[in-house]
Write a protein that binds this DNA or RNA. Structure first.
Lengths: 203, 203
DNA sequence: CGACTTCTGCATCGATCGATACGGAAGTCG
DNA sequence: CGACTTCCGTATCGATCGATGCAGAAGTCG
């Protein structure tokens, strides 16, 4: 499957897998999983449907690989944010990264993890569940980071890490929807800053 | 088109338009505009495709009428919230209504206005723009209500009504995404309450 | 070079997409 | 009743959906 070190093989692939994945990511990002047809995808990737199936399996597996790439690429701000020294820093970095990524010029507006497959037909529920798990995983990682902040005394002892994580990720998903609606980057940035003006929230 | 008062006509329609719209609304709500096929729609509506086209025009017009019904039905909490006496009451009612509607048992999870057509193919951009306008209109109405609250002294004079409206609607859209991901109603309700713990936010 | 492996372009598969044509059934009038 | 209007069931349209079969081109080995 991957790169052979020195094995005897045949004709090498005529295109760059990484670049093809990048192109496919932009198409899925803009049109969603079901809104992106094979014709549109392969045209953007510069390959034929045959090559796509040989290299990636099928459309759903292509999307799964695209999502991995998205997580380590445009959505990498999440992992970086979790490494901020304070919980407030985490929240700030997370929202700032969300605004930046969902409103980047010359990129599709919004977030692939949100608009990739929110509501789909029966045949797309696998991808729908995949993205729901992706979003919930993000929330879980933020919660665990906030729990650590409580343990370390960075957050008050009466703080509910789950509630706080739900709050921050709800803002992030909401920002993604606003961005997909065409809302300006600066307005979202100002809103995100103001939303963290009182910190932390508590029940 | 509509009801004749006493004119000479032929055979009356054999199904209830309102009930057919209600059924169609549930299908669009669950599967989105493009994820809902004519076969699924008409089966749920209990009519044939011919009857659907005769009564509603085409799929996009059907969706437009469904959206009107959704606005005056499941999403009517917005109009009611705007009539609350205080800006905080407006925000509270809006978020409470969002949580209630997006997590109602025996109903599709999430919000039709959000997941109906966030990312679509080229042929669906008309509906995509329609829903984006629907969301932005909701934000505008909240902003105008908050502006009134500033004028009346209900909100501090240095409050930015647009910022505040963007904050509340971002939370609402985020709640809709969380609900579509399967997040529990009580958790979202607690989060929404806590989010309004510090009020109002300011730049 | 010649055997071998893999990739790729073309054509096409059955299924489904949204949308219609047609004709008979069903109901409302004079 | 009989003329007229509308509705509806069946069958089907061309286009597109995701997914393959096949054969030849292209590259890597001995």
């Amino acid at each position: 499957m991957g790169k052979r070190q020195s094995g005897p093989i045949g004709r090498p692939r005529g295109f760059d897998t990484d670049e093809a994945l990048e192109r496919a990511m932009l198409v899925f990002w803009e049109h969603g999983y079901e809104g992106a047809g094979l014709a549109t995808l392969t045209r953007a990737m510069g390959i034929s449907t045959t090559s796509m199936y040989a290299a990636f399996g099928n459309k759903e597996e292509l999307f799964r690989k695209v999502l991995e790439r998205y997580t380590e690429g445009p959505s990498a701000y999440l992992a970086r944010a979790l490494e901020e020294p304070t919980a407030l820093g985490v929240a700030r970095a997370l929202l700032a990264g969300t605004v930046r990524t969902t409103t980047r010029p010359a990129h599709p507006a919004g977030c692939l993890g949100v608009q990739g497959a929110l509501a789909v037909s029966d045949s797309g529920q696998g991808v729908r569940d995949l993205l729901a798990a992706w979003r919930n995983d993000g929330c879980t990682r933020v919660r665990e980071r906030f729990q650590r902040a409580v343990d370390e005394g960075d957050l008050p002892p009466d703080t509910d890490p789950g509630l706080l994580a739900r709050y921050v990720t709800t803002l992030a998903f909401g920002i993604a929807v606003q961005a997909a609606s065409g809302v300006d980057r600066e307005e979202l940035r100002a809103m995100a800053d103001a939303a963290l003006g009182n910190w932390p929230i508590h029940p």
